[in-house]
Computed example of a mutant assay.
Amino acid sequence: MTKISGIGFHHAGLASADLERSLKFYIDGLGGRLMRSWGEGKDRIVMVDMGGGAVLEIFANGAAAPEQNGRFIHFAFQVDSPDEAYGAALCAGATSHMEPQDMELPSELPCLIRVAFVKGPDGEILEFIHQK
């Protein structure tokens, strides 16, 4: 039971040093869909639907943003094939952070996953995960 009526995850925000490069990466490279945008130039903001309820709000002029990302350490995307997502991300300009591999999470119930990590255009870490 939640304490806040109707609460649910809406989006994650990303400060981009090059908005067009980020849009090309997330839309053309990873298959996201443009939801809406507003503002112009350094004040432009774009919402990208990544599927499965994952939405990124990408802000232009991220070069002026602090480099720290607070306590968030990565964005995770559920995918059918981490290997294919990893390859698509690399082709779109990402750099490898961890090649695809199988892992068993040390939880109370067995949990087998396949996972891969890349760094996006602004150094953001993206995880591609599939639970087996």
Results as ranks from 00 to 15, higher is better:
4 I>M: 06
5 S>R: 06
6 G>I: 11
6 G>H: 11
7 I>T: 13
10 H>G: 05
10 H>E: 15
11 H>C: 07
14 L>K: 05
15 A>L: 03
16 S>P: 04
17 A>H: 07
18 D>Y: 04
18 D>C: 03
24 K>E: 15
26 Y>G: 00
28 D>F: 00
28 D>K: 08
30 L>E: 04
32 G>L: 10
32 G>S: 09
35 M>K: 13
35 M>E: 14
40 E>H: 03
41 G>S: 09
43 D>R: 04
45 I>E: 14
47 M>K: 01
48 V>H: 04
49 D>K: 05
49 D>I: 07
50 M>C: 12
50 M>V: 04
51 G>S: 09
53 G>W: 13
55 V>K: 07
57 E>V: 06
59 F>E: 10
60 A>V: 02
60 A>T: 03
61 N>H: 09
61 N>Q: 06
62 G>L: 10
62 G>N: 12
64 A>L: 07
64 A>C: 04
64 A>T: 10
67 E>Q: 13
68 Q>T: 13
70 G>R: 01
73 I>E: 13
74 H>I: 06
79 V>Y: 02
79 V>A: 05
82 P>I: 05
83 D>I: 00
84 E>R: 03
84 E>G: 03
85 A>I: 09
86 Y>L: 03
87 G>M: 02
88 A>D: 14
91 C>E: 14
93 G>W: 03
93 G>K: 03
94 A>F: 01
96 S>Q: 04
97 H>E: 15
99 E>C: 00
100 P>I: 08
101 Q>D: 04
101 Q>P: 02
108 E>P: 02
110 P>D: 15
110 P>H: 06
114 R>T: 11
115 V>I: 15
115 V>T: 12
115 V>N: 01
116 A>R: 05
117 F>G: 01
117 F>P: 02
117 F>R: 07
120 G>C: 08
120 G>V: 11
120 G>P: 01
121 P>I: 08
121 P>N: 03
125 I>D: 07
126 L>P: 00
128 F>W: 07
129 I>N: 06
131 Q>M: 12
132 K>W: 06
